[in-house]
């Protein structure tokens, strides 16, 4: 199960498990993003390389207009995945406290 929607504060709330079977839903939403955006991963439990690919594709597209994604409240397991993937150098990432 994966859900993605705008939260009350304007951030994009991602919930559940972003696996390869859920990428179509994630890509459809992120493909519409413009400008600076914050992704809130408070309730995102899991991400695989398929989800990483969508984040990278979105970040590259937004960078073309000098914008980008900030990812906040990342759990320590997903943070490890980001670190092994070198995402900490190309995204603004904040770990969950």
């Amino acid at each position: 199960m994966f859900e993605i929607e705008y939260g009350d504060g304007g951030a994009v709330m991602c919930r559940g498990r972003l696996d390869a079977a859920q990428c179509e839903k994630a890509e459809a939403f992120m493909g519409e993003l413009e400008g600076e955006n914050t992704l809130d991963f408070t309730d995102l439990e899991y991400i695989s390389s398929a989800g990483l690919g969508i984040l990278l594709k979105t970040q590259k597209r937004l960078a073309g207009s000098s914008a980008g994604l900030k990812i906040i409240n990342v759990n320590n397991h997903i943070y490890d995945v980001f670190r092994y993937s070198g995402f900490h150098a190309i995204f603004d990432i904040e770990a969950k406290e």
């Binding site: 990278l56 590259k60 960078a63 092994y84 993937s85 150098a89």
Partner: peptide, 23 residues
């Protein structure tokens, strides 16, 4: 697997096996 390049040079793909081999 390129995990060190700047954003403009990064390409999606190849991360899955890289992650497995690290985890």
């Amino acid at each position: 697997v390129d995990v060190d390049s700047p954003l403009e040079e990064r390409k999606p793909g190849g991360l899955g096996l890289h992650l497995i081999q690290n985890l």
